[in-house]
Simulated scan of single mutants.
Amino acid sequence: MAAKPIYRVVVHQHGEVWELYVREIFQSELWGFIEVEEFVFGDPNRVVVDPTSEKLERTLEGVKRSYLPLNAIMRIDEVERGGPLKAVKSEARVAEFPRPFPLPSRDS
């Protein structure tokens, strides 16, 4: 049986660009979201310590499933193997996801 594929998901999150590795990814029943499951973390026996990778591992520790907004996802790739999680500061601005309905006015 072939091993499950691994996906690299690059997402914009609170002024940072996160590079995550997951085994499951699919369209959510929540409109405008992608679900990702089974996070793949780097090699626990690695000698080099990366503070950003460790920060993301602590942030995602115990997370079973994550819902990512479509407009925050920059790229999704199927890769041969996982890598270290990364978080890089970004000045990019993420556009709001378009809505099919008008927002109520603030005067109401």
Rank of each mutant, 00 (worst) to 15 (best):
V47T: 15
P104V: 00
E61M: 10
P102M: 03
S108W: 04
I6G: 06
V36S: 03
R23M: 08
K64R: 14
V47H: 11
A72D: 10
Y67P: 00
L85A: 00
W31R: 13
V9S: 08
I25A: 06
E57D: 05
Q13E: 14
G42V: 04
V49E: 09
R8S: 13
E19N: 09
E54V: 04
G83Y: 01
P51W: 10
V63R: 15
E29M: 10
E38H: 12
E96C: 00
V10F: 07
G15L: 08
H12V: 06
R65W: 10
V88H: 09
V10T: 15
P98I: 02
Y21P: 06
V11G: 00
P69L: 05
S28P: 01
E96W: 05
S108P: 01
R81T: 13
Y67F: 13
V36Q: 02
V63D: 04
L56D: 07
E61D: 14
E80D: 12
D77K: 12
R81K: 15
P104K: 00
V47S: 14
V9R: 02
F26A: 11
I25N: 02
L30N: 11
R99G: 05
S28Q: 07
L70R: 10
W18E: 04
G42S: 12
H12R: 15
R81M: 10
G62M: 06
